[in-house]
């Protein structure tokens, strides 16, 4: 397994220009889609099968009367423990040697289980192809020595691309700097490999609570429930079983045998 690649999206540097969103569409040749009225500049409320990078615009009036306009370029997190990957029954979703998570369109059968298994609501079902789509981490580019199109385009280096073990210290330095500049709410999201989902290979620097950015406070691996529910199912199986056995049992077997005696 090659050294893990990562994308670090530093929202404190984002100017919401959406060059990343367009570059993604262009490189991946994603077709046009109807924009949604979100009340502001954002053109889709969430990821779609045609939007893998989504720039979020969040207006947040402060207590002190000042206004905060939080800008964030959201993307698939390429989780170390990926709900989508574990959910996929066909093996279409796989982990590349770079640690990124990708969907093999030829194998995907459109069961949509991954769609409901991503804690971030990233994967989307494509009704035209009947398959699931999401950010590929520019799989074709990274396998040809290029960085992701979105990172490449970003004019302010708000999206940085590189080896995870190099990006994380960079991110920590940046966080420290912001803290000392007085950004109290600044925090890293998904940088820590001991954190939720074993860390996110696309991690973020946020200026506010994750939920403000439409991110789960503490994402959990959905598959954690499978074992418990399975055991409980066995339990209820035994109960109905006993019930039925009692119902059907031939009392004392006094009534005429059915031939096998």
């Amino acid at each position: 397994m090659a050294r893990t690649l990562a994308m670090f999206t530093d929202t404190s540097l984002c100017i919401g220009c959406r060059a990343c969103q367009v570059a993604c569409k262009q490189w991946n040749e994603l077709p046009m889609e109807q924009p949604e009225w979100t009340g502001g500049y954002q053109n889709q409320s969430h990821f779609t099968d045609k939007t893998y990078r989504l720039v979020r615009f969040i207006e947040k009036p402060q207590a002190n009367g000042q206004l905060q306009w939080l800008l964030m370029s959201d993307v698939c997190k390429h989780c170390a423990q990926a709900g989508c990957l574990d959910a996929c029954p066909t093996g279409a979703i796989y982990r590349t040697e770079y640690g990124t998570v990708n969907i093999n369109q030829d194998v995907c059968n459109g069961c949509r289980y991954c769609v409901s298994s991503c804690p971030f609501g990233v994967v989307a079902y494509n009704h035209d192809t009947g398959r699931a789509n999401k950010c590929t981490f520019c799989n074709d580019r990274i396998h040809n020595g290029l960085g992701p199109a979105c990172a490449k385009t970003c004019p302010t280096e708000s999206i940085q691309f590189g080896f995870r073990d190099e990006l994380v210290p960079k991110a920590e330095k940046r966080l420290a700097k912001l803290k000392e500049m007085g950004y109290a709410g600044a925090q890293l999201y998904g940088a820590d490999t001991n954190g939720p989902l074993g860390g996110l290979n696309a991690f973020f620097l946020l200026l506010d609570q994750p939920t403000t950015y439409h991110l789960p406070e503490k994402p959990l691996l959905p598959q954690r429930n499978v074992l418990v529910d399975s055991l409980l199912s066995v339990g209820s199986a035994l109960l109905v079983g006993v019930g039925a056995v009692l119902a059907f049992r031939e009392r004392g077997g006094k009534e005429g045998g059915d031939g096998h005696r």
Binding site: S45, H46, F47, R112, Y113, V115, S116, C118, P119, F120, G121, V122, V123, A124, Y125, H214, L215, P216
Partner: peptide, 9 residues
């Protein structure tokens, strides 16, 4: 608006 997507089954 939910964060998690529905599989639309």
């Amino acid at each position: 608006m939910d964060i998690v997507k529905t599989p639309d089954w």
